[in-house]
Design a protein around this nucleic acid. Structure first.
Length: 622
DNA sequence: TACTCACAG
DNA sequence: GGCTGTGAGTA
C-alpha cells in the first residue's frame, strides 16, 4: 500500500495545486558560470578552454575549465593570468560614451599592453544585453517543454513538473509498468480519498542523474520516487535539448519544493543533476552541513539575526531546529516571542525581525527545515520598469555635455532592450514615464521624471534622449551652479508604466477611441492582455509559443494541452531521436507550428555582427 | 507614489 | 567588488 492518496496524484495535474500536493515535483535548473559560457560559445572556444568573463579588470564569471587553476571571481585579471597563462579573458560588450549601441571589442581589455585597446569605466559602459538575450533563448526552450516555468534570474529557472510527470505516468504507452494504475485511472475506478496501489515491482524505468541516497534506501519506495524518476528523465532531455541547440550546460536539482531543488541543483556542478527523494530530504539537509542561511532569502541579515535569536549551534542547525520543535510551529513561535521580549532594550539589534510576523516566521522555519516549505512556481510578470545606470568615476561626467554623452548610451540601451521584448512577445512596449536620477559627492540623489508622449506607434532612442536631456537640463539649471554638483558620481535613466499593444495596430484600432489599456499578466508564458473601456470589455489570451490568441481562458488551456501532448510524445516515443538531425527551427516548426521570429533589426545587432562576423551565436534567429 | 533597504546573482 | 535587478516596508 502506498502512503499517498489518489488526490495527491491527481493534484499534481493541476497548475494551481500541484506545489501543495504531497507528490509535488519541482526542478531548479541553473546555467553554469553563465556569462563565461556565453562568451565561450560566442567566440568558439571549447568547454576545456579556461575562459573568464571580464568587466574592466575584474572577473565576473569563471568557466569550470578556469576554476581548475584555482581562479575565482575575486581574482583580478592580473592574479588570474599568474595562475594560468593560457587564460582566455573575454571582456563584456560595452557602449562607448556618446554612442547609442554596444559592441564587443574582442582582443581589447585592461590586460592588453596597447593603451588604445584598454577598456576603462571612464569611457565605456558595460552591456549585459548579450546575456539577457541568451537567457531568453534558454527560457523559450523550457517553455516548450513545461507549462509552469519561473525565471528566477538571468541564469536559473524553476519548473513545476506536475503535469509533465502526470502525463508521462498516465499516458506514455511505451512504459508498460504502469498499465494497471492507468487502467484504474481511465476507467475511473478510484476514489480521491483512497490510497494508491503499491508501486509495481521491476519497473522498466531508470533515474537519470544522481539520486542522493547515503542510506542506501530502495530507489522506488513509493510513487513520489516514480514521479521523480520520470522527472529526471524529462529534465535530462530538456537539458540535452538546450545543450544541443544552444550549447549551454546546466545543473539541475529535483525535489518536492523550490528551496530543496535549489540546494540540489547546486550540489553537483557542472552539468549534473541531483535528485532528492522525499525520504532523503532530512539526510540531505543534515549530512551536507546546510544551515538556515543556506536557504533562499535567509542568506543575509535576516538569517543571521534569526540564528542568533534562536541560539543556534554552529553545526547541525537544521537538525537542531527540527529536534527542538518536533511537532508544530506553535512552540517555535512562542520561543521566538519570548526571546524578543527578553531582548527588551536590545530589541533594535534584531531590526529585521518583525514581532507582528512571528507566526509566519515560525511557520516558514518549521517547514523549511523539513523540506515542507511550499512556494508555488510563478512566472514573473513581463516588466515593470527598465533602468540604464552608470556609476561615474573621476571626471567622466563633469558638465552637462558629458551628461548628454551618457544619456546617448542609456537611450540606446533602453531602446535595445525594448526591441528585445517586442520580438519576444510580438507586441509593442510603450513606456509612459521616464526618469533621470543623479548622484554627486555632496548630495545623495536628485531626480526628475515626466511622462513620455507617445507619438505614433514607435518609440526609439531619440525620444528617450530628448526627454532625458530635458530632465537633465532642468536638474542642471536647478543644482548645476552648486559647488559639488559636478562631477557626478552616478547618472541613470529609467522608463516605466508600459503599455503593451498588438503590433501593427494602434490602441484606437484595437479598443476604440476612449480606450484605456490596463495590463494584466498571467502566470506562465500564456499572458492575457486585458483592455477595459467605458463600453466594451475584451480579453485576449495569448499562447506565446504559437503567437495565437484566444478569446477565453478555457480555449487557451485547451490549446496549451496540445503543446504538452506534442512535447511529451516527442520525448517518450523516440520522436526526439528521429528529429535529431533537423535544425532547431525545423524541429520547432514540426512540434509547435511556430513561426521563427524575424531577424532582429536593432542597431545593436548590425553593429555586433559587424564587429564579430565569425559569431553564429544568434543563428537561430536568422 | 517615491524612496530606502535587503537580498540575490 | 562592481553592477543590475526585484520585492517589502515606509513615509
Amino acid at each position: 500500500m502506498s502512503k499517498y492518496k489518489w488526490r495527491d496524484l491527481v493534484d499534481i495535474n493541476s497548475k494551481t495545486r500541484s506545489h501543495l500536493s504531497a507528490l509535488s515535483c519541482i526542478a531548479h535548473i541553473d546555467a553554469n558560470a553563465f556569462f563565461a559560457q556565453v562568451e565561450q560559445i560566442r567566440c568558439h572556444y571549447t568547454k576545456d578552454d579556461p575562459v573568464v568573463c571580464v568587466q574592466w579588470s575584474s572577473i565576473i564569471a569563471v568557466s569550470y575549465a578556469a576554476r581548475k587553476y584555482g581562479i575565482t571571481r575575486m581574482d583580478s585579471i592580473g592574479d588570474a593570468l599568474k595562475k594560468c597563462d593560457k587564460l582566455v579573458p573575454i571582456h563584456t560588450a560595452v557602449f562607448r560614451k556618446g554612442e547609442d549601441f554596444w559592441q564587443y571589442h574582442d582582443g581589447c581589455g585592461s590586460w592588453v599592453d596597447d593603451e588604445d585597446k584598454k577598456l576603462t569605466p571612464e569611457n565605456f559602459k558595460v552591456s549585459l544585453d548579450p546575456y539577457r538575450r541568451e537567457s531568453r533563448k534558454i527560457l523559450k526552450v523550457f517553455n516548450e517543454w513545461c507549462d509552469v516555468v519561473e525565471k528566477a534570474s538571468v541564469d536559473e529557472v524553476f519548473l513545476d513538473l506536475g503535469r509533465c510527470c502526470f502525463s508521462m505516468l498516465m499516458f506514455d504507452e511505451s512504459v508498460h509498468s504502469f498499465n494497471e494504475i492507468r487502467r484504474v485511472f481511465k476507467e475511473g475506478e478510484y476514489d480521491l480519498d483512497l490510497y494508491l496501489p503499491p508501486v509495481p515491482r521491476n519497473l522498466d524505468i531508470q533515474f537519470d542523474g544522481n539520486v542522493y541516497n547515503p542510506e542506501k534506501r530502495s530507489l522506488f519506495e513509493d510513487w513520489d520516487d516514480v514521479i521523480f524518476c520520470l522527472a529526471s528523465i524529462l529534465t535530462n532531455r530538456i537539458r540535452s535539448n538546450i545543450e544541443e541547440v544552444l550549447g549551454y550546460t546546466t545543473s539541475c536539482g529535483i525535489a518536492r519544493t523550490k528551496s530543496i531543488s535549489k540546494l540540489a541543483s547546486n550540489f553537483k556542478k557542472p552539468a549534473a543533476q541531483t535528485i532528492i527523494k522525499n525520504s532523503c530530504i532530512e539526510d540531505f539537509l543534515d549530512n551536507e552541513k546546510f544551515e538556515i542561511t543556506s536557504f533562499w532569502s535567509m542568506g543575509g541579515i535576516t538569517g543571521q539575526e534569526l540564528s542568533q535569536l534562536l541560539n543556534l549551534p554552529k553545526e547541525k542547525t537544521i537538525k537542531y531546529i527540527r529536534d527542538s520543535w518536533p511537532t508544530t510551529s506553535d512552540e517555535l513561535k512562542g520561543f521566538i516571542d519570548t526571546k524578543l521580549r527578553e531582548m527588551g532594550k536590545d530589541r533594535d539589534k534584531y531590526h529585521t525581525i518583525d514581532e507582528t510576523q512571528t507566526q509566519a516566521i515560525a511557520d516558514k522555519l518549521f517547514q523549511l527545515v523539513r523540506g515542507e516549505y511550499r512556494l508555488s512556481v510563478n512566472a514573473k510578470p513581463m516588466v515593470k520598469s527598465m533602468m540604464s545606470n552608470k556609476n561615474l568615476r573621476g571626471n567622466s561626467c563633469k558638465n552637462f555635455k558629458d551628461c548628454i554623452a551618457w544619456l546617448e548610451v542609456f537611450s540606446g540601451e533602453l531602446d535595445g532592450r525594448i526591441r528585445e521584448l517586442e520580438q519576444e512577445y510580438n507586441r509593442l512596449f510603450i513606456p509612459k514615464t521616464i526618469a533621470i536620477s543623479v548622484r554627486g559627492h555632496k548630495f545623495q540623489k536628485h531626480a526628475k521624471s515626466s511622462s513620455l508622449m507617445f507619438t505614433g506607434s514607435h518609440i526609439h532612442s531619440k525620444d528617450f534622449l530628448e526627454a532625458g536631456s530635458r530632465l537633465t537640463q532642468e536638474l542642471d539649471m536647478k543644482f548645476g551652479k552648486d559647488s559639488g554638483y559636478y562631477p557626478l558620481t552616478n547618472l541613470n535613466m529609467s522608463i516605466s508604466n508600459f503599455e503593451i499593444l498588438e503590433k501593427g495596430k494602434t490602441i484606437v484600432d484595437m479598443f476604440g477611441r476612449q480606450a484605456q489599456v490596463t495590463k494584466k499578466v498571467e502566470p506562465g508564458n500564456f499572458s492575457s492582455v486585458e483592455s477595459v473601456t467605458a463600453e466594451n470589455k475584451e480579453s485576449l489570451f495569448l499562447c506565446q509559443p504559437c503567437d495565437l490568441s484566444f478569446s477565453s481562458e478555457e480555449q487557451l488551456r485547451e490549446h496549451a494541452d496540445y503543446h504538452y501532448a506534442l512535447k511529451l510524445s516527442e520525448s517518450l516515443n523516440g520522436a526526439n531521436e528521429d528529429s535529431k538531425n533537423l535544425s532547431y527551427g525545423e524541429r520547432r516548426l514540426l512540434f509547435s507550428k511556430r513561426k521563427r521570429p524575424a531577424c532582429s533589426s536593432s542597431k545593436n545587432d548590425s553593429k555586433r555582427v559587424k564587429s564579430t562576423p565569425q559569431s553564429d551565436i544568434y543563428k537561430f534567429f536568422k
